[in-house]
């Protein structure tokens, strides 16, 4: 599903040039759950942004579903994004002015899903995440765990092929974190590809492969061994 060749990203300000990604080659197959680990500033989030088509790479190639997408315009990237990708962030990034229901519904407005279908999908998801009773609340009125469940619901509502999760449990206590990880694992089990950035070894092991990064480079890749 994803393949990068010598992928690099350089940020330039007036005086400083920072290499956030340095010739990264990775490959992710459909149905995988890949965790990315590494210390702060190693380029994890940049990798997520580039793979999530939020940023363009400075050099190298990026194939999504065997199509080169690294040099697309923002407009085309937005098109690919809204039909294929779902995002979960550490700080949830719910829109404060929208209710729980409206936040989850939002991506479908941009993909022009008919109203009846929208209602059905939002309610199914909220039911599944066990937050249906809070559908008319605003994000500030929810706990962190609830907010992240809403964010996950929003990420999957358009049935994306790939979910990009940037430290989804970073702002949560362990109980809530566990719950979110289980939801992600269930999604993966039902066929959704997941790429997750995390600091936590525990969370990383929910996936089936761990990529470790340092100074913008991939240093190791391990398959997670499960001992049951």
């Amino acid at each position: 599903m994803i393949k990068t060749v010598q992928l690099s990203k350089v940020y330039r300000t007036d005086e400083v040039e920072t290499t956030a990604l340095n010739s990264v080659d990775i490959e992710i197959k459909a149905g995988e759950f890949v965790s990315v680990m590494g210390p702060s500033g190693c380029g994890k989030s940049t990798l997520m942004n580039v793979l999530g088509m939020i940023d363009n790479p400075s050099a190298g190639e990026y194939f999504f579903n065997e199509q080169e997408v690294g040099k697309l315009s923002e407009r085309k990237r937005a098109d690919v994004r809204k039909n294929n990708l779902g995002f979960v962030f550490q700080s949830f990034n719910l829109i404060d002015e929208l209710t729980v229901y409206e936040n989850v519904e939002l991506p479908m407005l941009y993909t022009k899903v008919p109203a009846g279908e929208r209602k059905k999908r939002v309610e199914e998801l909220l039911e599944g995440m066990n937050i249906m009773h809070r559908k008319n609340h605003f994000p500030q009125q929810l706990s962190g765990g609830q907010q992240q469940r809403v964010a996950v619901a929003r990420a999957v509502v358009n049935k994306p092929k790939l979910i990009l999760a940037d430290e989804p449990t970073g702002n949560l206590d362990s109980a809530n974190g566990d719950e979110v990880m289980k939801i992600l694992a269930d999604l993966n089990a039902s066929g959704t590809t997941i790429l997750m950035v995390t600091h936590s070894q525990y969370c990383a092991e929910f996936g089936n492969r761990i990529i470790r990064m340092l100074d913008g480079k991939v240093v190791t890749e391990n398959v997670v061994k499960r001992y049951l």
Binding site: R75, K82, N83, Y110
Partner: peptide, 16 residues
């Protein structure tokens, strides 16, 4: 920034 940023990530076009 946040609102507009999130909307864009989710797939909102400039026109929207």
């Amino acid at each position: 920034t946040k609102e507009v940023g999130v909307r864009k990530i989710i797939g909102a076009g400039g026109q929207q």
